[in-house]
Simulated scan of single mutants.
Amino acid sequence: MTAAKTVLYFGFYLYLTGITLLVVPNFLLSTFQMPVTEEVWIRVVGVLVLAIGFYYHQAGSKNITAMLPLTVVARIFVFLSFAVFVLLQFVSPMLLVFGVVDLLGAVWTWMALKK
């Protein structure tokens, strides 16, 4: 599998997550044992996730090779940030589920780049 395909597929994951946060945020929050909210911030996060998903989708579908290794760095940063948030007890450890998905996606892309 090409690195571009890994980024393209990760974009679809981001689309799904972003749409869920935008449309039914409390479903996702309660599923991952996080406090539900009626505040708009979670929907704002959904919009941002959708926008990032668009970048990933475009980079993957157009094989924008300069961006592919940058996604590895960004996704490792997301994992590390979420891990620190959990260690500082700012959030539920369930946030690491999303961080691990980012980390696994980063490893997948990195391995594809090495081929």
Rank of each mutant, 00 (worst) to 15 (best):
residue 59 A to Y: 04
residue 2 T to H: 08
residue 16 L to H: 14
residue 55 Y to C: 08
residue 80 L to M: 07
residue 76 I to C: 13
residue 27 F to Q: 15
residue 86 V to R: 11
residue 61 S to T: 00
residue 68 L to T: 03
residue 10 F to V: 00
residue 86 V to C: 14
residue 67 M to K: 06
residue 21 L to S: 12
residue 8 L to T: 00
residue 45 V to E: 11
residue 40 V to S: 12
residue 26 N to C: 07
residue 39 E to V: 04
residue 31 T to G: 13
residue 79 F to K: 08
residue 73 V to R: 13
residue 59 A to K: 05
residue 7 V to I: 14
residue 36 V to R: 14
residue 41 W to V: 03
residue 33 Q to S: 09
residue 52 I to K: 09
residue 73 V to Y: 15
residue 63 N to G: 00
residue 17 T to R: 02
residue 31 T to A: 13
residue 5 K to S: 05
residue 43 R to W: 07
residue 73 V to K: 13
residue 81 S to W: 11
residue 37 T to E: 12
residue 8 L to A: 04
residue 65 T to N: 02
residue 60 G to N: 05
residue 44 V to N: 03
residue 57 H to I: 01
residue 41 W to D: 10
residue 30 S to G: 05
residue 86 V to E: 14
residue 69 P to H: 05
residue 49 V to D: 03
residue 16 L to I: 05
residue 79 F to E: 10
residue 79 F to L: 10
residue 80 L to N: 02
residue 74 A to I: 11
residue 80 L to H: 04
residue 6 T to C: 08
residue 13 Y to L: 07
residue 29 L to H: 09
residue 71 T to Q: 14
residue 34 M to C: 07
residue 85 F to L: 09
residue 63 N to A: 13
residue 64 I to V: 08
residue 38 E to D: 14
residue 61 S to F: 12
residue 57 H to D: 03
residue 62 K to Q: 06
residue 66 A to V: 07
residue 40 V to D: 14
residue 10 F to N: 09
residue 7 V to C: 06
residue 9 Y to N: 15
residue 3 A to K: 01
residue 11 G to L: 13
residue 21 L to W: 12
residue 65 T to Y: 04
residue 68 L to M: 06
residue 54 F to K: 12
residue 50 L to V: 01
residue 4 A to R: 01
residue 75 R to Q: 07
residue 42 I to C: 12
